[in-house]
Structure formats: C-alpha cells, structure tokens
Write a protein that binds this DNA or RNA. Structure first.
Lengths: 354, 354
DNA sequence: TTGTAGGCGTTATCAC
DNA sequence: GTGATAACGCCTACAA
C-alpha cells in the first residue's frame, strides 16, 4: 500500500481495516455496538494513518461548525490581547476555534468581515464595535433573529436577543473625574472616546455628572473630541494646553490616550503630575510601567472575553434563550500620575437634591 | 413566501428565481454564458435573500479552505499582536481568514492545536515555537511532505519544504552585547531565552562571541536560564544581583524580561542605568515608554507576519515550490537605559586570529 | 454487530 | 444559455 499523499479519509481507514465506513465512525466516536476485536483493529489503523475526521464535512453535515467569529478594532490595541485570550481559552475548552478579524473600526471592513464570518458558518459572533454602525447592527440583528448567538461590546444593545458586555462606562468616568475633583482640581479637561460612539456618550455623561455634583461649571473648550490611540492623546493635550487657561487635570479616553498625552507633556517640558494630572482607562499593563504610572479604571479584560465566550456557548446550548446583559464592576486603580491633593479632600456632604 | 429562519441556500435562490442551481452559481461567480435578463433577475433574488455560498460546502467540494492556522505562544506577549496583525492583513487581502491559537509553549497544547487546525483543513500554517518540540516538528514535517505550506518562526528549519522566518538571533545578541562592552562594561550578565530552545542557543552563542572578541573571560554564573516573560526578568535579576560580584550590565531575552529586571532593580533601590544597565530585544512599543527606555534590538514584527503569510500564499499558488528562508535585518535601537560609556570606547583594533 | 441509502450545499462536467 | 448528474467526506437511520 503506497503512502497517501493526501490526508486519510474515513474511507481509507475503512478499506484498510476491511470494515464499513460507519464502523470506523462508530469506533472513532466511541459509540457502543462494535465488537472489541474490530474496535481494536480499527483503532490501530486510525493511528497508523493519522486519521481525523474532516471538520468541513462534519460541520456541513451537522449544520454547525465548531468556530467562533471574533471581530475587534485591532489586536494591536493593548486592550484586546487579553480580551481575545479570554475568548480563545474558553473556546478551546469546548474544542472551538476562533477566527480573528481586525476592523480598524472601518465600517466597510466591519461589514465585510461579518459577511466573511457568515460564509464560514461560524457558530457564534463576538463583536466589539463602538461607532454606531447601523450597517453592522442590521447584520447582527439578522443573525440574532435566526438565533445565532451574538455578543457585542462597546455599543448599545441592538436587539433583545443580542448579549452585551456592560461595563458601566458612565460610572467609571464619573468615578475617575470625581477622583480628580477630590484631589482639588477644578479645571478638568477630557479627551473623549471616538465621536458619535456609544462609549463617548456614556463617558461624557459621567464626566459631566461629576462636575455638576461638585458644582463646577462646564467649559466646552475642555471637551476635546478624540479616539482610542496614542495620537489622539498627543493631539488632544496639545489643543488643551494651547487654551488661554489650560486645565490642570485631564480625563483621557483610555490608557493609550493618556500615554500619548503624558509623552507630549514631557516634550513640552511640563511635569506630570505636578503641572498636569492625567487619568486613563482600562488599566493595560503598560499603564503601571510608564513614568509616571497612570491612575486608571481597571477593566477585567480577560474575564470579559471569557464571559463573552461563555454567553455564546450558553446560547448555543439553548438557542431559545435571549440575549443577556453581562455586567462587570470596574475597580479604580490609583497610581502616581495624579498629583497628591491640591487641597484636602472635602468631607462628603449630603447631596442637596438638584 | 414565508421568511426563512435559516440562511438562504443556493437552492432557495434557484427556486425563487425559477432557474437551476448552477445558473445561480454562474451568476454569483460572474461566469459567462448567462443571458442578461436572467442574470439581472437572479442577482436581485440573491440580494433580497442575502445569499452567500456556504463556505463549508465550497471548501469541501474544492478540497481547499480559505483559512490559515496561526499558532503562537500567546497573543498577550506584546511581540505577537503586531505579528498577527501583519499575518491577518495579508490574509485578508486574499479573502483568507485566520484561526488564532495560543499554545503557551506547552507541548501538549501545541500538538493539540495542530490537530485541530488539521481538522479544519486549513490551507496553510504559521507556527511560532521555540522549544525544540519534536512532536510538533514531526507533525509539521508530515504536512510539508504533503505540500501543505508551513512557515515557522523561532526554530530551526525542520525540513527543506518548510519556510522559516530568520532574524539572525546570533548577530542581534552579538551586537547588543558588543554595545554594552563598548560602553565600558566588563561584567555582563545574560538572562537567557527558554531552555533548550533554538533561540537560546543562538543568542547565547552571540553573547559569548562578543565577550570572546573583547577578550572578556566567560563567567558561567552570569548565564541565567530564563524565558520570555516579565517574571523571568525579576527572578533572573534577583539571582544576578545576589552574586558576590554582580554584573554591571545585563542582556535580557526580550523587552518584557528587561522590564521585569528594571522593575525589580528599582524595588531594590538600584538606579537604572547608573547602577546596572539593562538591554532588551524586540523593541516592543512599551520599551520606549517605560522609565528608563530600553536599549533594544528592533524586529520588524508586522512585516515578519506579512511576509510569513505571503510565503504561505506563494506556496499555495505553487505547491511544488520549496520552503524558503526569509531573512530580516535587525536594527539596533539605542535609548537611554544603558548608561553613558564608563570608559571611552576603544578604537577598534584588527582582530588577531584566534 | 455490520452494511446500505440518502443528504448536508456547492461546483465541475457534460448533455440538451 | 440552461439543466441534470456526480462527487467532496461525513453521519444518521434503517435494514440485514
């Protein structure tokens, strides 16, 4: 028997073992009803030929594939490696594999990738998107209507059958802004998340609420449209520092933006946090290593990925189950990059009703 | 006609358009031989039903799937996001998708994942592995023998049909060690890459060659078995600093290890680079942001991923083509974390033959 | 206990 | 130009 140049199929095994195809299948899947000697013999041949069922054929036949589509802005954004790792680990436990797609938050890429994933017949979708991309929402809703598991992150819940990872962006933004206020800052700027995004809405709301609670007047010049990249931080801080009366503290959209701001400030000869305090968001690894370390809100990134994957499995096992809101608490990590209190923190008074 | 609860198949389209299945196929793939009116009509139905061919079926039929398997230690290692992004971008240009697998360098996971990828019938493999995992090599060689494209990174070329990404680890290690020597250091430690690995072999060789060239005696106590993680850096530096005569400079296996070492040194109250110089490898983004920034060897990470993917495509298009060695040059990035020369650099003398 | 039939969705090849 | 047939590899049901 000449060695095969292609991978062995179940037919090859059956032929070699002088049994029928479905006997091989039964043996491979440890089904009962096969005599021990036959079982032994077939197993040997399977070993020898390195037989494994063709997943394409199995999936086609079974009308379900052991794959999950993961669509994120970019794996090079330090927030996502942990997130994806959480997904992948959970997937692997169930012998699922993941397709990784980087959209760069381009609408066209997002829709293109979703189509590609649909072609692959992925069993579930985990999609991180922020800009209110209606095209994407439309596709996701379609999928949800067909009871395909979908978990989103960073956007509003587009349909009640879609699960969302909820991290209470408003509360996080409120807390970190309040922290700056408690340190004595009154002129607090914000470099915002991407425009027209859901996250931007909530974060800005939290920021404004904190100011309002402290009876600090809002200054629209302190609200700088931004994004999630280092460059947004450098550009944002430049605009803020160019103001006649620049802020003494800045809430950045995330740690990358904070890093961009800090680097730019250093270049300008400003001291951080003595001249300007910078707060971040996400608590990426880098944020405790740079100088100075960043005060930030910690997201349980790995766990969020894991939970997203588990939500997908939940729905795979019970297709009728609705989408769920998976909530995560956000611990605040205080490090050095906000200066010590300019004034002693005020004792908390009871909030007079507005 | 009730709306379908499952995705539309080519049969659905054919029925709706009152044509045969293969007419639909021809229209979808823009094949000639269909009358214009029919073409129009079919196209409309395709739109309306959101038809897309089932990739599983296509791939099964065509005996090739538009997927690539990517196996790396972990996406949370900051070296890999850029690498994977390079792969993914290149793949996407050709409408290929990638399966991402994290092995943590566990042999069992590596083999398990390779089997999984084989089940998925991936069209090509990109595998980063370092420990001389013979089991993995065996599988990869098997694949190569069947003319399945395989590109490896971090290990020796296991078979002439396997392509490898070659970054001249020995030269890089030689250069960065020489740099420390030129700064005047004579007591130079090394926190090595993972044990028994190919990379370790080459890097250590480069390190030793640099010492030899400078006629510095080797001190085996300065060679610390390590790895690629932050923890390896902290443990490694602790061992080195506990020596009766600790080194004044350390070559770390990569930037993460360097960061671990620097953080540990700071905790010990040592100044970096004044008391101890630390050099890294990879030039990850973090390495220029931490305090102090790290002297390091830059790997063109994104480009390496892209080239790996392109090598796979090359072989897909020409299955008979052999594996190739894809070489990358390694610029050295000098930043602040090595102290200024302790002595003025010696003028280079001609090397007397050994 | 094992074998036979049919179909998952697609496409290539060949008649009409 | 269009339509029927077969096959990719596997699995479930049913028959022997």
């Amino acid at each position: 028997m000449p060695p095969l140049t292609r991978r062995a199929t179940i037919t090859d095994v059956a032929r070699a073992a002088q049994v029928s195809i479905q006997t091989v299948s039964a043996v491979f899947h440890n089904k009962p009803g096969i005599s021990e000697p036959t079982r032994q013999r077939v197993r040997q041949i399977i070993e020898r030929l390195h037989f494994e069922p063709n997943g394409l054929a199995s999936s086609l036949r079974a009308q379900r594939s052991l794959t999950i589509g993961v669509l994120i802005p970019s794996i090079t954004n330090p927030f996502f490696p942990d997130f994806v790792r959480g997904i992948e680990d959970a997937a692997h436990l169930n012998r699922y594999s993941i397709f990784l797609c980087n959209s760069d938050q381009h609408q066209s890429k997002e829709t293109e990738y979703l189509q590609l994933l649909r072609r692959h017949n992925v069993a579930g979708y985990i999609v991180a998107y922020d800009l209110n991309n209606l095209e994407v929402e439309k596709i996701l809703v379609q999928l949800a209507l067909r009871h395909t598991p979908v978990v989103t992150f960073g956007s509003r819940q587009a349909h009640k059958r879609i699960s969302v990872l909820d991290t209470d962006n408003e509360e996080g933004s409120f807390r970190i802004t309040s922290h700056l206020i408690e340190l004595g800052h009154r002129r607090i700027g914000m470099i915002q998340p991407p425009d027209r995004g859901h996250v931007n809405l909530l974060r800005t709301r939290g920021y404004l609420r904190a100011l309002k609670k402290a009876r600090i007047a809002t200054n629209n010049e302190y609200l700088i449209p931004g994004g999630f990249d280092i460059a947004d931080g450098t550009k944002g801080i430049e605009r803020l520092m160019a103001l006649p009366i620049p802020p003494t503290a800045v809430v950045a959209a995330n740690d990358l933006v904070a890093i961009g701001a800090i680097t730019a400030l250093k270049r300008m000869g400003k001291r951080v946090p003595d001249d300007v305090s910078i707060a971040g968001y996400d608590n990426i690894q880098m944020s405790e290593l740079i100088d100075p370390p960043i005060t930030t809100i910690s997201q349980p990134t790995y766990q969020m990925g894991k939970s997203a994957m588990e939500a997908v499995f939940h729905q795979i096992n019970d297709p009728e189950s609705s989408g769920r809101v998976i909530h995560f608490d956000l611990p605040m990590i205080v490090r050095q990059s906000t200066s010590p209190p300019l004034v002693s923190p005020r004792t908390k008074k009871n909030d007079p009703s507005p």
